[in-house]
Design a protein around this nucleic acid. Structure first.
Lengths: 184, 184
DNA sequence: TGGAAAACGGAACACGGTTCCGTATGTTCG
DNA sequence: CGAACATACGGAACCGTGTTCCGTTTTCCA
């Protein structure tokens, strides 16, 4: 069996997740480490012990939402509508997720090494789903084949940066153009 | 006449522009203030005296290139080809500019107040040009009207973030999709 | 040439991430 | 039950970067 963690450690981890989630809502995923620690009533080192990089913490906080998004892909395809429509709907789910998490899109695109894990997690989990949707649409002759799923996800992620500020900019409009541009 | 600046001040300003340009090429537009100062052989305060915010420095370094891009818009239209093609070519000029300036796209999208001037400068200078091209294409019936030039520029800028790293991502592919998506 | 005004340099400060280490607490075994 | 060990903790200390302050130097004009 795996070595059992100490009770206080498990308790602190849960407390930290709550505190981080709250801090992220208020101040974005760049919320200062000290703030999160203070909110949870622990020392800063405790955060680093449980989540060595900020990416680990972000992944832990949002893991279930990412899973839900990943699982929605095949479900949309199974509904039997047009694959292109399914792709569009799914991308919009992803956009909804990103734009409601202040700064997450910016963190995702960051090339800072600390965010490699975040990058890897999102890509590992979501790119295959996107690829599946792209393949289905290409097979149905609705879009031109040859678009790389990774590139598409990267681009959509980029389009979502700064969407929550700047009210003049609506990421969904640009994403819609991209989806339209895929059409054969 | 405007109050004449001291000779050493003018000299330092020119030196700083050179140093900053060099630093930007090597380390991107986020190059540490101290590095730029050291390169120019001046103290850090001298930078702040001449360019109160980083945005001022960036604008000063790239002003002529932005002007060139702005002037290319009407020129492309005047060449007599299809307005939609002109729009595509012009956007690609803009993309070329952004992706060769490490971190500039990221700075542009930043909502940090320090970059307001950078934002304003780019938008004031380039959005009208983009709008002109959009209008021409719409009038020619090549694209659907209703796309906001500001939104398009913002989106294209976002797509260029991180293009110079991540070799798997080519901003131009995504931009091409957006341009294609504009088509009626 | 003298002195006021302009400009300078670098030390000092602020702030956020990261690490270290002495202390406290949970756990296990006699 | 209680001692001893491992685990986890807190917060002070450290580092890098942007920003400001102030005593000193340079320019320029009278």
């Amino acid at each position: 069996m795996e070595t059992r963690k100490r009770a206080d450690a498990r308790r602190n981890e849960a407390t930290l997740l709550d505190a981080a989630a709250a801090a992220f809502v208020e101040a974005g995923v760049d919320a200062p480490v000290r703030d999160i620690a203070a909110r949870a009533g622990v020392g800063v080192a405790t955060i680093y012990r449980h989540f060595p990089t900020r990416a680990d913490l972000i992944v832990a906080v949002y893991r279930h939402q990412v899973e839900a998004c990943a699982e929605a892909g095949p479900a949309l395809l199974a509904e039997g509508g047009s694959p292109h429509a399914a792709l569009g709907t799914w991308i919009n789910l992803f956009v909804d997720f990103l734009v409601t998490k202040h700064g997450l899109a910016a963190a995702l695109r960051s090339d800072d090494a600390a965010f490699d894990k975040l990058h890897a997690y999102f890509l590992d989990r979501l790119v295959p789903v996107c690829a599946q949707l792209l393949d289905a649409a290409a097979e149905a002759g609705e879009i031109n084949p040859g678009t790389d799923a990774l590139e598409l996800m990267f681009g959509v992620g980029n389009l979502c940066i700064g969407a929550e500020n700047h009210p003049q900019y609506n990421a969904r409009h640009m994403v819609a153009l991209v989806i339209a541009g895929l059409r054969r």
